[in-house]
């Protein structure tokens, strides 16, 4: 990986919703190669929109997207970009559309030209890596919320992307599954950008933090001293918190 050429770069991106006069994103500049980035911000501040612009699902009004040193200008360029970037949706139900888990995980590899046998092999090994051994023939909509999230992640990882865009991956997960997801993400070699409101989750999976504030994307300072108010049983007793 050369430092001079980021995997993907956004230059002076402007976006506002169709029909809306107030801009949602202004002058967004961003580049990523191998970093693990967390993205926080208020509801509706444009975090998901930012992802959708990167993936070409929404078109920016102004600005440039440069992918591996090449400016993206047409549908074909985006097709190439999409096979290198994996986008995990907020709602896994939107991502899983095939009847069985195996078919869903194999969908990406098949589209990228793998033979059915290769696709099957890639899918099974991806599922195994995520600890989903034996899930191949499960019916996607009958999975639990946590299982759906992990299978959705598998559908993306089976395409062997270089960068993952994860939209609130820890939402609605129980502590065990959340921990499992953290371990999976830490073990992956890919770079990622994670949108989340869960600061602890971001702290354990990311090394940099960005935020969208007043339509601008900003990098947060690395460490800030702060305190939390929190509640739990026996909180009045002297106690220690885990890291």
């Amino acid at each position: 990986m050369t430092l001079s050429k980021p995997l993907i770069e956004l230059r002076n991106i402007y976006y506002s919703y169709p029909g809306s006069k107030t801009p949602l994103l202004q002058d967004v500049n961003f580049a990523i190669s191998e970093e693990r980035i967390g993205l926080i911000g208020e509801n509706g501040c444009g975090k998901t929109t930012f992802f959708q612009i990167i993936m070409g699902l929404l078109q920016a009004e102004k600005g440039e997207i440069i992918f591996q040193g090449k400016m993206i200008s047409n549908k074909k360029d985006f097709r190439e970009l999409r096979s290198t970037l994996g986008f995990l949706f907020q709602n896994s139900d939107d991502q899983l559309f095939s009847p069985t888990v195996l078919e869903d995980v194999a969908f990406g590899p098949l589209n990228m030209g793998a033979t059915p046998d290769e696709a099957k092999e890639i899918s099974i090994s991806t599922l195994e890596k995520l600890g989903l051994h034996g899930f191949e023939d499960r019916i996607t909509h009958k999975l639990s919320g946590g299982e759906k999230k992990l299978v959705a992640l598998a559908t993306i990882l089976s395409m062997q992307p270089k960068l993952l865009l994860l939209d609130e991956p820890s939402n609605n997960l129980d502590p065990t599954t959340r921990e499992r997801l953290i371990n999976i993400l830490r073990g992956l070699k890919q770079a990622h950008i994670i949108i989340s409101h869960d600061l602890d989750f971001l702290a354990s999976t990311c090394s940099q933090l960005y935020t969208i504030q007043d339509t601008h994307l900003r990098r947060c300072e690395d460490k800030q001293i702060h305190s939390h108010e929190h509640v739990h049983p026996y909180g009045d007793q002297p106690h220690q918190h885990g890291t």
Partner: peptide, 24 residues
């Protein structure tokens, strides 16, 4: 809306208009 999001999910995973069966 859901149909639209599913379509997006499919496009992001390289769907170009034909479903390739896994077991045939």
């Amino acid at each position: 809306n859901r149909a639209e999001r599913i379509h997006q999910a499919m496009i992001l995973r390289g769907f170009t208009g034909s479903l390739i069966p896994l077991n045939q």
